[in-house]
Design a protein around this nucleic acid. Structure first.
Ligand code: FES
Ligand code: FES
Lengths: 152, 152
DNA sequence: ATTTATTAGGATAAAGTTGTCCTTTATTTT
DNA sequence: AAAATAAAGGACAACTTTATCCTAATAAAT
């Protein structure tokens, strides 16, 4: 009886992108460069689609790619602190999450707000600041010590 | 360079559903029953698609429908207090918004959490309680006094 | 130089969501 | 009773997102 089953906050592409990036970060912390096949296996995502997303993230400078044998994906230790979740989301899903109206009006506009605006804005701001303040390093280390997981 | 433009929280169907329901509530407050054509016009949504969504909301008892001439959609004054935003969202988008993992793992599971879990849960709970505590009456009255809008 | 491993990128298929159209059913008005 | 009006519902079309497959480019290893 339900029409849709939408993802909660991010597109599938973005979910895979975040998971992949965190996995790459984790491995980079241990000095390992990783290839798409391994990434897709470890985060349980479709290989070719994941490759496309990594391409995107590479263009956006979120991750670094190296072609050829011994190649793969990696992230410089320094970048793990400066790369925030918001950059990954922005590279894949754009910035609707920051500017869009929760009820789908053409723009979110405080001087001509939709009925949800006031209540919505608070949640959206919390989400935004969470994304902007969460670094890749933080996410990767949680994984490193076995506190968190990338598949189930 | 962006792959997707996803809606922020709700599907398009859900956005239309909420806007339509609020409009019906507003008109019901003034004793008017409204037909799909008018609703779609007033909330700026595609007519036939809106009709499908209203069908769904009618089955879920969020709104009441009457067939034939002088028919249309309406909401009893009493129901405007008991109908919460969460019911509309649940009827159309299901309950992923309550149970889904933000990174797309099969389930959100606190004992085997994804790297975003702790930060995500707070925002999800805020969203949930916002939806569960916001009544249709509240939304309709804001509109009634000209403070909010359903199209732009 | 050749082979091999890897990312980049294009084309396209599959699935899901959004949107339209037409027929049926119910109910009021004439 | 017949005509008119409105929701219900089925079939399907258009668009978007997700996913696959194949070829090209790049670079290391042999
Ligand atoms: S106008 Fe709708 S969220 Fe701001
Ligand atoms: S496990 Fe991912 S949000 Fe809870």
């Amino acid at each position: 009886m339900i029409l849709n089953e939408i993802p909660l906050m991010f597109s599938k592409a973005c979910e895979y992108g975040i998971r992949a990036t965190v996995y790459i970060a984790l491995q980079s912390l241990e000095g390992r460069r990783v290839i798409v096949n391994e990434i897709a296996k470890e985060i349980d995502s479709p290989i070719a689609f994941t490759a496309k997303i990594l391409q995107q993230l590479s263009k956006s400078k979120v991750i670094h790619s190296v072609k050829g044998p011994t190649g793969g994906f990696e992230i410089e230790r320094n970048n793990m602190n400066t790369v925030k979740l918001s950059m990954i989301v922005h590279a894949i899903d754009g910035d609707d999450i920051y500017v869009g109206c929760g009820l789908g009006l053409k723009e979110c506009n405080a001087s001509r707000p939709c009925p949800l605006h006031d209540k919505f804005i608070d949640i959206r701001n919390d989400l935004r600041s969470m994304l902007e303040n969460t670094s890749l390093y933080e996410l990767a280390t949680g994984l490193e010590v076995g506190l968190t997981y990338l598949k189930r």
